[in-house]
């Protein structure tokens, strides 16, 4: 099986709200999967079901872990929740030992892994510090270590970068990408699109408990491209009126070209070359942020239209 996690008709209702509305979703092994959506979309509800914190009303969850025979699948998930904290009175080393052993590691193995990660993130000095002596950002790094220390196959990070400074954000990003290279699967929940664009392979956009967009990041961007190209050139356009093209000058030697008639790229290039000498020819893809806002607004409008 190439999907580490398969959700089928996942459904969860609270008193008045449908938090997760019959969602089907496959998470491919080794991917960094972005779970996107506005606040209150149902991301955290979904994650809590996957991590066995809340019960699902109906539907099914299937895990396909490489390592068979692990009795307790809880041990093979690492979870960094959005609501996160540490025992304030406990030393960092003790806490990490506790968390690692709670995930089924032997004391020896736990110690080994903790040392490895503390070293890797330059945190060795913190071993004997109490959590309450650390800053919020430092605590967050400890929480990150706590979520991966047992070397799970599936990692779930809920807004992992919120509250981190740019340097630590970069460090964490680097670690996450590295984990994915080691065949770990990462589910990454956020509403910060720029981060998703940087590191995610696949995304699912959730709103009001429903998936409104799903697939490989590249495919999605292509799907939402508006056939606009940026060209840099030498020379002058004799006429701006070329059949099927809408040319807009940005500055001298740079223009945006809209391909209204969907000519193939090679033909488009040829058509433009007839007029000017082309230096560069780039397709402008929409940012995920634009797609996100567009899709959420569209979904909202559709809902309203349905109500009227």
């Amino acid at each position: 099986m190439n999907n580490i996690l398969e959700l089928k008709k996942l459904h969860k209702e609270y008193e008045n709200v449908i938090a997760v509305n019959s969602i089907d979703l496959d998470i491919p092994r080794g991917s960094i999967f972005g779970l996107l959506g506005p606040n209150g979309a149902g991301k955290t509800s979904m994650i809590r079901i996957i991590t066995h914190i809340t019960m699902l009303d109906s539907g099914s969850i299937t895990f396909n872990f490489n390592e068979k025979g692990i009795k307790d699948y809880m041990n093979n998930i690492g979870y960094l929740p959005e609501e996160r904290g540490l025992y304030p009175e406990m030393k960092i080393g003790e806490q990490l030992m506790f968390f690692a052993q709670m995930k089924g590691l032997s004391a020896k193995k736990a110690k080994e892994n903790i040392n490895h990660w503390l070293q890797k993130l330059d945190m060795e000095d913190w071993y004997n510090k109490k959590a309450q002596e650390l800053s919020k950002g430092m605590q967050q790094l400890v929480q990150f270590v706590a979520s991966i220390v047992h070397d799970p196959e599936l990692l779930i990070f809920d807004e992992p970068f919120s509250g981190l400074d740019p340097i630590n954000t970069e460090r964490l990003k680097k670690e996450i990408v590295e984990l994915a290279k080691r065949d770990k699967t990462i589910i990454f929940s956020t509403h910060q699109m720029s981060q998703v664009e940087e590191i995610c392979d696949e995304i699912a956009l959730i709103d009001k408990g429903v998936i409104i967009l799903e697939g490989k990041l590249k495919d999605i961007k292509n799907r939402f491209k508006k056939d606009i190209f940026e060209i840099k050139y030498n020379g002058q356009f004799q006429s701006m009126n070329i059949d099927g093209l809408d040319i807009e000058l940005v500055e001298d030697g740079c223009a945006l070209v809209k391909n209204l008639k969907y000519y193939p790229n090679s033909q488009l290039l040829k058509m433009l070359s007839d007029h000017v000498e082309i230096y560069s020819f780039t397709e402008i893809l929409p940012s995920l942020n634009e797609i996100f806002i567009e899709q959420v607004t569209r979904a909202k409008n559709m809902m309203e239209a349905k109500h009227e």
């Binding site: 929740p81 996160r84 904290g85 968390f99 709670m102």
Partner: peptide, 9 residues
């Protein structure tokens, strides 16, 4: 706020 980690373990 450690509940989620604990309950998922």
């Amino acid at each position: 706020r450690i509940v989620e980690i604990i309950v998922s373990s």
